[in-house]
Simulated scan of single mutants.
Amino acid sequence: MSTTTPTPQPGTTKEASPVFLENMDQLQTLFNQFDANKDGKISAAELGDVLKAMGSNYTEEELKRAMEDIDTDKDGFINLSEFSSLCRSSSDAVTAASELRDAFDLYDQDKNGLISASELHLVLNRLGMTCSVDDCVRMIRSVDSDRDGNVNFEEFKKMMSASMPSNDRI
């Protein structure tokens, strides 16, 4: 099995971007998940909705400060370029690993170290992504190397660092 390493964008290294955002397709997919109304920009309300769905308890003031920090052109929205800069700003490998663990923990609702199809289904629906439990079973099967019907953290890391079609990513 051969693996290829994506070519880093100019001015960055592979270590300079989070493990799960190695190419523009992945970045666009993540951006689209935040952009609920599909208008090409993320509003403060959309950012707040996603953070709430992920279990974060941000105050309105914290959300406002985050938007001010991210929205460099000061138009009141986060565009793809600003979102890309935000994602790349997590350059520390420890931070990226911590963020990956946090993402895994978001899906691992019962905290047993595994993501089941029902957990995946629950979280994706909370994030506004409509899919069936059968769809989630297929997504898990595509990365379930030990064939236990779940995704463990090692499988999750491999999945998130691989270049996969966007509909196979958790």
Rank of each mutant, 00 (worst) to 15 (best):
R126H: 11
K74R: 15
M54D: 00
G55E: 08
Y107A: 06
K52R: 14
R126Q: 14
D69R: 11
T130V: 09
D135S: 09
E46C: 02
E99I: 12
G40K: 04
T72N: 05
Y58F: 08
R65G: 12
I42C: 02
I115T: 03
G48N: 06
I115N: 00
E62H: 01
L120G: 02
D73F: 04
T59F: 03
F83T: 02
S98K: 09
A93Y: 10
L51Y: 14
V123S: 00
A97Y: 09
S98H: 13
C87Y: 03
C131F: 05
A45S: 10
F104Y: 03
K38A: 13
L86Y: 01
K64W: 03
M139W: 08
E119L: 11
E60L: 13
M54Q: 04
T59S: 11
A93D: 15
E68P: 07
D134N: 13
I78D: 03
A45P: 09
D69S: 15
A117M: 00
L124A: 10
F83V: 03
G113T: 06
F104L: 05
E119S: 09
D71F: 05
C131D: 00
V123M: 05
E99C: 14
L86V: 01
L80D: 06
E68L: 10
D108C: 06
I140Q: 00
D73V: 04
D110G: 06
N79V: 00
R88K: 07
S89A: 05
L106H: 02
E60M: 13
N37P: 12
L106M: 07
Y58C: 13
D73N: 10
T72K: 08
K41I: 05
D49K: 14
T95F: 08
I140P: 01
M139P: 13
G113N: 05
D71T: 07
D92C: 15
L63V: 04
A117D: 00
R101P: 01
I78V: 12
Q109V: 13
D92L: 06
D134V: 09
S56R: 07
A53G: 14
R141I: 00
N125H: 08
T59A: 04
L122F: 13
A93I: 13
V123A: 02
D134P: 08
T95C: 12
G113Q: 04
L47N: 02
R65V: 11
D75S: 12
A117W: 00
Y58V: 15
S132T: 14
C87N: 08
A97H: 09
E119Y: 07
L122G: 10
D92W: 00
L86H: 01
G40Y: 03
L114P: 11
F77H: 09
D92S: 15
A97C: 09
L47K: 04
T72L: 12
D110V: 06
M129V: 11
D71C: 06
G40V: 04
G40M: 05
G48S: 14
E62G: 04
E119F: 07
D49T: 10
M54L: 10
A97F: 11
Y58K: 11
F77D: 15
S85C: 10
V50K: 02
E60F: 07
D49R: 14
D75N: 14
K64Y: 06
